[in-house]
Amino acid sequence: MSEAVSSAPAVRPHPALEGETATGPHSDKSHAQGQRQPGLDILRCLAVVMVLGSHFPVCPEEISRPVHELTQMLRTGGWVGVDLFFVLSGFLVSGLIFSEWHKTGGVRVGRFMIRRSFKIVPSLYCLIGVTVLIQYLTGGGIPWKGIAGELLFLQNYYHRLWQHTWSLAVEEHFYTLVALVAAWCLWKRKPWHNGLALTLALVAVCVLCLGVRIYNASVHPGFAEYLHLYKTHLRLDTLAFGVLIASYWHRPNSWLPGWARQRTLYLIIAGAVGFMPFFLIHRQTHWLMYTAGLTLLALASGALLLGLATMKPSQHWLVAGLTFVGRNSYGIYLWHMALPRWLGLIPGSNPQGGLNWWTLTAIYWVGAILLGVISTRLVETPFLALRNRFFQARPA
């Protein structure tokens, strides 16, 4: 298979893109300096902070008016962090395939899927195992349908144990599709990484997905997250847009990195402006918010990605803090709802818990980061070490 298409001029990939997921850190390093790309970790940090903010109660106005306004905005629009994760994941994970193809003229599809599984599955299954154990010990019984949905990555169509794991199902479905397409191209000797055909195909996916969302909104006029946001066939375009960016970024002698480097500020501003309406307008207020609005989010996320992708490493304490959260973002994303649920602090389930809002906030944010770091250190990192030992990335 590796000789199915002719080799292109070598392009050195970001080596640890191999560990990438939309909901977590990876071990990618810059081309020349052997370091992580801080701009991408900052994007992860931004995305996970927005998601955490969307799942926590708004600060009461009598406590602090400015904090009330800030938390209200996060509660309204923080969900868009998932879309930022999607575009970033589409860019990074497909970059693995593009880099390997350009270097060697082929892709080991099976190894690609195995390596991704080592990244995603252990941490998720750990969360599910702990969830089932706690539910059983507290007399809740065994939720077999929810377990099946989570373990089989069907939680966005079937039953689930957690509200937020639907995004992992979307990613797994999309990258399985990407792997199948790559395998088909190898079998048919089609150079899928080659320019116009891939661009048109990805643009077609984006247009088709928008059309499906509009049709879905007409069939189901009353907004519901499960009906309008969670389904894979409604969200493929956001990941596809990340793939589209990667397809140009990873080409030999690509013009895109240099173009983005010269327009960093403009791209960041454009991305921020694109996100702003979602923090001011509730997504259920109009069908455009969850149809064309999701297309706008993909474009805004792409702009932020291009604006920060060429950021140089920095020793500044603020950058160090943001990148630390970004490196642990997968674990933080997975576990951020655990403490509020198990301590009875989530909205609608004893939201006060006898504690004031500031104490609840500290428990939520510090607990989420702490559990995420523990998950990264005790589960994710050891399994990535095993992966790299037994399923090494393809050498240059």
Rank of each mutant, 00 (worst) to 15 (best):
P9Q: 06
P13N: 05
E18R: 08
E20N: 00
A22K: 02
G24A: 02
P25G: 14
D28S: 10
R36C: 02
P38D: 11
I42V: 15
L43R: 06
V49Y: 05
V49I: 13
S54I: 09
F56M: 12
V58K: 12
E62P: 00
E62H: 14
E62R: 12
Q72E: 11
G77T: 03
G78C: 09
V80L: 03
D83V: 03
L88M: 06
G90H: 01
G90F: 06
F91K: 03
L92V: 00
L92I: 01
V93S: 02
G95C: 01
G95Y: 00
F98R: 01
W101Q: 13
K103D: 11
T104H: 14
G105H: 11
G106Y: 05
V107Y: 07
R108S: 15
M113N: 08
S117T: 15
F118W: 03
V121D: 10
S123R: 07
V130I: 15
T131G: 13
V132K: 09
I142T: 13
G149I: 10
N156T: 06
N156I: 05
Y157D: 05
H159M: 04
L161P: 08
Q163E: 14
L168N: 07
V170Q: 05
A183F: 10
W184E: 00
W184G: 00
L186P: 01
K188D: 00
P191K: 04
H193D: 09
L198W: 07
T199G: 10
A204K: 07
V205G: 11
L208H: 12
A217L: 03
V219Y: 04
G222M: 09
A224P: 00
Y226I: 07
H228L: 08
K231I: 11
L234C: 08
T238P: 03
A240L: 07
G242Y: 02
V243S: 10
S247H: 03
Y248T: 01
W249N: 03
W249T: 04
R251P: 00
P252A: 05
P252H: 09
A260P: 04
A272S: 14
F275N: 02
P277W: 04
F279K: 04
F279Q: 07
I281L: 12
R283Y: 02
Q284P: 00
T285L: 09
H286C: 04
M289H: 02
A292W: 12
A292Q: 06
T295R: 05
L297W: 06
A298S: 14
A303Q: 06
L305T: 00
A309H: 08
T310H: 07
F324A: 12
Y330A: 01
A338K: 02
I346N: 10
G354A: 12
L355T: 10
W358V: 15
L360H: 14
A362D: 02
A368E: 05
A368P: 11
V373T: 15
I374H: 09
T376Y: 15
L386Q: 08
R387P: 03
Q392F: 01
A396C: 02
